[in-house]
């Protein structure tokens, strides 16, 4: 039996019927065609599926789609507003804080959730926020640099 749910995603209201066992990640990728969030492990261990729900970064592979009912969701596709990049997107490009790019959407959303609740994070705050986002390419240093720089711009 399908469940009817309503939620907001990247500022748009959506009504959907979803299977009770479908993950939120699968719904976003397959039903809404927002493929920025990735599945890297399907078990909440790598963070590449991170999206923001009601201001908090979550692993969307660990939530069921039905749990999105009534929520306000932001994915990487909603980060740039009216064609203007979010400061994080700018500083990730500037610092080459990405290589293959597969972890990048999740990394950006974890960082965004941090800066939304704490515009002046310490280095430890940043490490805490992206501690669950695995990147196999960059070695993380440039990612830390990019988030620090974006935090400066937000001030």
């Amino acid at each position: 039996m399908k469940h009817e749910i309503s939620f907001t995603i990247n500022g748009e209201k959506v009504h959907l019927e979803v299977e009770p066992n479908k993950t939120l990640l699968k719904m976003i990728r397959e039903d809404l065609n927002l493929t920025g969030a990735k599945e890297g492990c399907g078990a909440g261990e790598c963070g590449s599926c991170t999206i923001i729900i009601d201001g908090k970064a979550v692993n969307s592979c660990m939530m069921l789609a039905v749990e999105a009912d009534g929520k306000d969701i932001m994915t990487v596709e909603g980060l740039a507003k009216s064609g203007v990049l979010d400061p994080l997107q700018d500083t990730f490009i500037k610092n080459a804080a990405l290589q293959c790019g597969y972890c990048t959407p999740g990394m950006l959303m974890s960082a965004k959730a941090l800066l939304m609740r704490n515009p002046n994070p310490s280095e430890d705050d940043i490490k805490e926020a992206i501690g669950g986002n695995l990147c196999r390419c960059t070695g993380y240093k440039v990612i830390l640099d990019a988030i620090k720089e974006a935090a400066g711009q937000i001030n």
């Binding site: 493929t35 980060l79 990049l85 994080l88 990405l98 790019g101 959407p105």
Partner: peptide
């Protein structure tokens, strides 16, 4: 990086 923009926007 020439692929930066497409990767940060998802």
């Amino acid at each position: 990086r020439v692929d930066g923009l497409e990767k940060v926007t998802g």
